[in-house]
Design a protein around this nucleic acid. Structure first.
Lengths: 333, 333
DNA sequence: CTGAAAGCGCTTACAG
DNA sequence: CTGAAAGCGCTTACAG
């Protein structure tokens, strides 16, 4: 089966390729009605579909962007991706989605491939370990937006939640509810992850309330060690009465462990989670949660990137777009 | 900043473009060591990155596939996408992810654009309303695989769970646990959705156990009407004692309503859900679930598609790849 | 109003 | 062992 190209159409309609191209791009300002109709008819009859690749090669734009997340299964990433897609779809852009799994080698490979495929820009939840590559993109003036994290030495704007505020809201609520022995468990990823700021917010809030910081109460653990971590907290001489879960997956592990020990929330242990979970409202007890506006974050990131791609007069030179988390008080504290 | 092309490299290394191209494609069988080194050096020095678009245009392959789902936020879709990505990544393929939102117009537009962008194939959770377009792809010998649904009049292979079996497992377990008044709530999408088969399985199982089918107990509802649906069930003269939730979102709505009425599971109402949910194991009571092997389904779909793309001697001519769901018994029934 | 021609950045027989 | 040339399917000044 021969592929039908613009040349085929041109021949069939007895015009030049230029004319077909003009027609396709809506430039019929100076095209006779008759020619227009002939071209239109030929396209229909031949069932011609333009090859966008060829156009992209010539025009140097692919109307495709790359999105690199750690894992698209995480609720936050999934929501960010979904809202990026919605914005992109409006502009007829498409999304190539990549999972770097917190692996900087994988991230690097994806960035390289995506650039080789000439995507018009990227939105990245960075692993943080490819500073040279990030800066290389900056130097080439390549449109990139970070989400969830910022890197001090990289001039790429970041869209993220105010992580310090997130833990501050939670810790303050614990304190206002009468708790004094408060623990935090976050995930252990790496040095620049949001967890740092969340721990900072935790410490600052204890401090400003005149409470002592107990290093034993602070845990940064890989997900498979969270349950063990809770166990250790409970075995402390003075176990905490409240735990702040640094993200949704950590919260789930904590809940699993508490249930396995038949511990009651909040009587035996008060709990607040950062990141919404699907069951927060109907869990027993309903869970108090600090919610991240993931959709707003994705939307903002997409808008920033589209702005950069369309070079809207260098809008958005700020380095940080901070969104406010929201404390939803229910019954787990 | 001038872009660096193969021509730049050729000039810099004092060779022809052909030689650079050969080098890049590892065809140095007949290339002098010296030439090889010169080319390598020039590529490094110039920081040259090949433009894959140009290659794709020539080679007629983009190493990119399209994936169209209803909504990537749904757990099932998210898991399917993730496992497709893993398979594709091994073959250095990329994924363009699209959300059709059960909108056949949107689906059609995505299919058109994806083909125009010359993706090498597509994996689709079809809306079902674009039969002509699906068949057009079949006629053009375009590699496509369906997931989650099959269409009788379309010769595209489908990878899906045995839906009849899913509800059969659940209903039989209700019956074996002593329940007789059993209801099913599925989501209302359209005529060809898996819900049909799930309802069929439900009916058949009641029937084979000599139980009467009560039409009032069967509800196909949009997600926002599920709670109202449960309410209506409870107001029936003979309300059911057990509900089968046709998918994860429906289950969540049911749980919300039961909690709002302070109804206890399984005493006041036994519950089984189809589709895993993150909280099944530590919910109170822990939830009995029929699990779909979403990752296996995604993997199979990706493998089938890659096979088609690489034309592996027309493997996989079967029309259906049915995966078995698994009943995980916990305490909600 | 329409077309010839050059060019986007690669690949690939083919020739030498 | 290496290169000249044609071609992938478009777009776009430019000419007439």
């Amino acid at each position: 089966m021969k592929t039908i190209t613009m040349a085929t159409v041109a021949q069939h309609a007895q015009v030049s390729k230029s004319t077909v191209s003009h027609f396709l791009n809506g430039r019929y300002s100076h095209m006779s009605d008759e020619t227009k109709k002939r071209v239109e008819k030929s396209i229909k009859e031949l069932d011609y579909r333009p090859n966008i690749l060829a156009r992209s090669l010539k025009q140097k734009t692919t109307t495709t962007i790359g999105v690199i997340v750690a894992n698209s299964l995480h609720t936050f990433s999934a929501q960010v991706i979904r809202s990026i897609e919605d914005i992109c779809n409006k502009a007829d852009f498409h999304l190539i989605v990549c999972n770097a799994d917190n692996d900087s080698i994988k991230e690097q490979k994806y960035i390289d491939m995506l650039r080789a495929k000439q995507v018009d820009g990227m939105i990245i939840l960075p692993t943080g370990h490819n500073e040279a590559i990030y800066n290389d993109m900056v130097d080439s003036n390549y449109p990139v937006v970070f989400v969830d994290r910022t890197l001090p030495n990289v001039a790429i704007p970041s869209v993220m939640v105010n992580n310090e505020m997130a833990s501050r809201l939670a810790v303050q609520h614990f304190i206002d509810s009468g708790y004094r022995k408060i623990s935090i468990i976050t995930n252990e990823i790496d040095a620049i992850a949001p967890r740092i700021e969340r721990i900072v917010g935790y410490k600052k809030t204890l401090d400003s309330n005149g409470l002592k910081i107990e290093e034993d109460y602070i845990k940064a653990l890989e997900i498979q060690h969270v349950q063990q971590g809770v166990k250790e907290l409970l075995e402390l001489e003075e176990p905490p009465q409240a735990i702040l879960a640094g993200n949704d997956l950590t919260l789930i592990e904590i809940l699993k462990y508490l249930k396995s020990q038949n511990l009651k929330i909040p009587k035996d242990m008060a709990v607040i989670g950062i990141d919404d979970v699907s069951f927060a409202s109907f869990f027993e007890p309903a869970l108090t949660i600090v919610e991240q506006p993931a959709f707003d974050i994705g939307k903002k990131a997409a808008e920033l990137l589209m702005g950069k791609i369309q070079k809207e007069g260098q809008v958005g030179q700020s380095k940080m777009y901070l969104f406010e988390p929201e404390l939803v008080i229910r019954n787990s504290c």
